[in-house]
Simulated scan of single mutants.
Amino acid sequence: MTAQTSGALTVLVTGASSGIGADVARQIVAAGHRVYGTSRNPATVEDPIAGVTYVRLDNADYASAAACAAEVGAVDILINNAGESAAGAFEDTPMDAVEHLFAVNVFGPVALTKAVLPGMRERGRGTVVMVGSMLASFPVAFRTNYAATKAALKGYAMALRREVAPYGIRVVTVEPGTIATGIGERRTIHIGDDSPYRAEYETVAAATRANEAKGISSTAMAKTVVQAALSEQPKPFYARGNRAPVVFALQRVAPRQLVLDLTARIHGLAKIRP
């Protein structure tokens, strides 16, 4: 697939202060494009990237999406990357925490996408990239709410792709596998000290830490995001990490229960039939 060659593009990357977002912003600047990167507190970005203009965005504050879009102006490419990670027992997670996670990981990106779409539609071009997670395709116990938010984001992207296609707008989903970004240290966890789920949660948590320690780098993952963003004819879906080509091929041909069992096994859980 060929990259866009229509001169310098204006690219808005959310969550550009660290991790995948920072590497995406860095690579797009290196490609010669204008980059705006969001942060909840632009003035406190610890390692600002030369060539990136930082603007405020709080995904949980939908009004900030409109303010961000107004500040940036015309956007050629929007990369919805910002989000939060969460884990724990479904029963132990309070509803306000579930609502907050959906606000940050789903409704915030939706609000920002809605804010930039009119301009893209009027100009007859644009690309929106939703950065999700392979947990949307391969959900695992004790990541229920997080997997649900990423599945929702994927659903929005897949449905929206055809809706805006007549106006020259492309919508793409990118699903990272396990990435070595240190996100586990910032993950919100809900598990009671005396929770009946605690032993199995600890098993999954330990497996997750081990998988993340040997995951692919955020720089490598960012290359896939940038490829999707700059392509003239992007595919609807990209995935990288966790042997993505193999596991997605397996998902297409294997019984769903087998795929769920294998996903659980990778996270240290034994196969159990209710």
Rank of each mutant, 00 (worst) to 15 (best):
A3F: 10
A3I: 11
Q4N: 09
G7R: 02
V11A: 03
L12P: 00
T14R: 00
G19D: 09
A22Q: 14
R26D: 07
Q27S: 07
Q27I: 09
A30P: 00
A31N: 06
T44Y: 13
D47E: 14
Y54V: 04
V55R: 12
D61I: 11
S64W: 05
C68D: 02
D76N: 09
A87L: 08
G88L: 06
A89E: 12
V98E: 03
L101E: 05
L112R: 10
K114S: 06
V116C: 00
L117K: 02
M120K: 07
M120H: 05
E122N: 13
R123N: 11
G126R: 06
V131H: 00
A136T: 02
F138D: 01
K154T: 13
Y156G: 00
A159F: 13
V164D: 00
A165S: 11
P166Q: 09
Y167F: 15
G168Q: 05
V171S: 08
V171R: 12
V171T: 04
T173H: 14
E175R: 10
I183G: 00
I183W: 14
E185K: 15
H190T: 03
I191R: 02
I191T: 04
G192A: 13
Y197G: 03
V204G: 04
A206L: 11
A210R: 10
A210T: 13
T219E: 15
V226Y: 03
L230H: 04
K235H: 10
P236I: 07
G241V: 09
L250C: 12
A254S: 05
A254F: 11
Q257W: 06
V259Q: 01
A264G: 15
A264Y: 10
A264F: 08
R265Q: 14
L269A: 02
K271E: 12
P274G: 06
P274R: 05
